[in-house]
Write a protein that binds this DNA or RNA. Sequence first.
DNA 1: CTCGTTCCCGGCATCGTTTGCGTAATATTT
DNA 2: AAATATTACGCAAACGATGCCGGGAACGAG
Lengths: 343, 343
Amino acid sequence: MDDQHSVTIKDIAQRLKLSPSTVSRALRGGTEIREETRRLIQEVAREMHYSPNPIALSLKEKKSKIIGVIVPEIANNFCSATIAGIEEVAYSRGYHVIIFQSHELYEREVTSIQLLTSRRIDGLILTISNETRNYDHLQALRGKGIPLVMFDRVCEEIKTHKVVVNDYQGAFDATCHLIREGFTRIAHVAIAPYLSITQNRLKGYEEALRSHHLPVKKNWIVHCDFDAMSIEKAVRQLFEGSERPDAIVASTERLAIGCIKVLREMKLRIPMDVALVGFSDNPLNKFMAPSLTAVQQPTFDIGQKSAELLIELIESKTPPKNYRTIEMKTTLDIQDSSRNLTG
Amino acid sequence: MDDQHSVTIKDIAQRLKLSPSTVSRALRGGTEIREETRRLIQEVAREMHYSPNPIALSLKEKKSKIIGVIVPEIANNFCSATIAGIEEVAYSRGYHVIIFQSHELYEREVTSIQLLTSRRIDGLILTISNETRNYDHLQALRGKGIPLVMFDRVCEEIKTHKVVVNDYQGAFDATCHLIREGFTRIAHVAIAPYLSITQNRLKGYEEALRSHHLPVKKNWIVHCDFDAMSIEKAVRQLFEGSERPDAIVASTERLAIGCIKVLREMKLRIPMDVALVGFSDNPLNKFMAPSLTAVQQPTFDIGQKSAELLIELIESKTPPKNYRTIEMKTTLDIQDSSRNLTG
DNA sequence: CTCGTTCCCGGCATCGTTTGCGTAATATTT
DNA sequence: AAATATTACGCAAACGATGCCGGGAACGAG
């Protein structure tokens, strides 16, 4: 119905019988302009509901003012909370955010990055997929000079700013807590072994055992993917041996939920038969049956910090001397799933 | 470090000593070109890793290939699942998605729309905030000819495609279920009274009572915002009268969770003292204490359908004869929170 | 040999905005 | 009053890509 034609700088110029350049200067705060003319132009601009065309700006400035974010799944509490943090900072600094989901697939991660770069985004924030072992696509990004910030699942090979939590300490604390509660046969269910967070959490778990003179048993450490089948297989495997664990440290929220599901099916009660600690910030944790003890991460802050670092990279003229890795603190939220009720 | 200079059509032209127009024709499949030249150009383009600049395209075509989405909170299961559906369809059709959060604030909704339109998005998908009672900002959007699709919380006043669920039936089914379980004093906790979903769910609740010859008591119907204070006040209010409800139908997931929280504080057991049914698709429902009976909505499908409708609007030359309202089916997932254990 | 046709390709304008440069008009200096 | 300095604006190019138009070359027909 309507013209669909938004008012441009030329429309203003024409109406005032001025040149587009003059209008531009009046609006952009340039100096070579009479104060009277400027006010006139500004007034007319407001009256005509002028708003600058960001696409034209992008073309000229070679800046899209858009940052990309790649996460495994948006419908995941950790991811969406992080994104909320990213968005807050981004919007306050005039950036918009385009989100991609890798669905934990390496292929999707690669194609997402291709799409994102072809979109001429100014920078990228990502946490790699569960499958990702090759970082050529990220290296290519760095090669093209596109600012990058990694969070959560990061990797040594890529030199850039990173935002992580103290995964080691989180797992260490969780395991120590279980030990203090009196559990001694503590298993660990983790995701892909080559991921940074997996390794760090595993180290924390192992170190906690060692520091309490408990043995680290290889068959009490299992890795799995995120599908139900894989989790079920991994958990059942833990209880196949002669010596069954009496507690589990689950490396992520979805794994913790998966454990609950499988343990229920196996008619094992939590925490009476098996205690459980997860990594999770879900506000529903305390309403679960049993309420879930979890290592909590400052998700919103992680997102905020990531966005701040990225925008800093984008807007600095020169590449930074050295890249930083921000490590945030986790807290252990103790609920019922890890209590020793027999004591 | 690098040039940051992505290869353009001119670079190819220069290297081949051809004109940009020829290169463009070769790449865009125009006809006025020799097949030999085309292959040569395509080969060189591939070799030089050429990818068209979408910003330049946008400027010329007046299409950004970006659609905006406004939801109350991304860190909300319903919203993020819907967004997942939107993204799937959008990306498969070559669109990118920019997300805004209204945080249930009318002001934020208005400014988000301003930002979005100044971004020259091709269309918008939104569900209004809990506060929104004035639709001028949406009307303005329609006035500008920007395609719009509403979902979940829609409104009569705006003529456009809409995607909703059968809120009436969902609430009706939920209430009937409670009645069948033997509950007779059923209360309803809802969000803002002027929202479409509130009204429809309320009607379903009331009609279920009436059809079973149960009285509709006004003081068993409470409305509240999403903050903890407001929910607590509303729920406590229900139990102040002489006749206390024995069941609650909560109009949204967050309200259901809020009810659980307050009921716990009040030392009321679910479902023994008060039964509860919510509207929720959270996969954690069945792991909660008690597991939560809920009206489930096909969130992913809602997102998909919304995106399909929007893209249809965007890509059709002429405005449609009539706008459609797609109504999807809800299903009642019966868990423990609504079971009558005394029977 | 000339004219017309067809085939390929280049020139130019365009999208909306910014910016360096040129310049006319005004202001300042001597 | 003349020379210079300053002001305030217009012109044109550029960002990357597209598409209309026009033109040169090759060719066939008369």
